[in-house]
């Protein structure tokens, strides 16, 4: 497997998408959507992060082992969030 050179066109395309998403996230923040403000803002941020990881960081063109490393990192982050939040949010159930 030789090195994959990502074309300039793809870099500029991803850059444009990141800019559009930045404008979108600022625009959506001016609307009052209640709890959906946070959900939309986070969804856009996750999408932007995925574009950067897959294209700017070349993970899309990387080996399976690299995928496993990256996936493991985010999986462990999910464990950190899920277990901590399940603790904090279930404390009121004890009725103290």
């Amino acid at each position: 497997m030789s090195e994959h050179i990502v074309s300039k066109k793809i870099y500029f395309l991803i850059f444009s998408a990141l800019m559009v998403l930045t404008v979108l996230t600022v625009f959506v923040a001016t609307l009052d959507l209640g709890r959906f403000n946070a959900i939309v803002a986070l969804s856009i941020a996750v999408l932007k992060a995925m574009l950067v990881v897959l294209y700017f960081m070349h993970v899309r063109y990387s080996s399976k082992l690299t995928w496993a490393f990256v996936g493991a990192g985010f999986f462990w982050l999910a464990i950190l969030f899920a277990l901590t939040l399940s603790d904090y949010f279930s404390r009121p159930w004890l009725g103290q």
């Binding site: 600022v26 001016t30 959507l33 946070a38 803002a41 856009i44 941020a45 992060a49 950067v52």
Partner: peptide
């Protein structure tokens, strides 16, 4: 850059619609 992509909406845009 990715860290900032999350910091910007979480810190700056939270109260923007108010």
């Amino acid at each position: 850059d990715i860290v900032w992509i999350f910091l910007f909406p979480l810190l700056y845009l939270l109260g923007a619609h108010e």
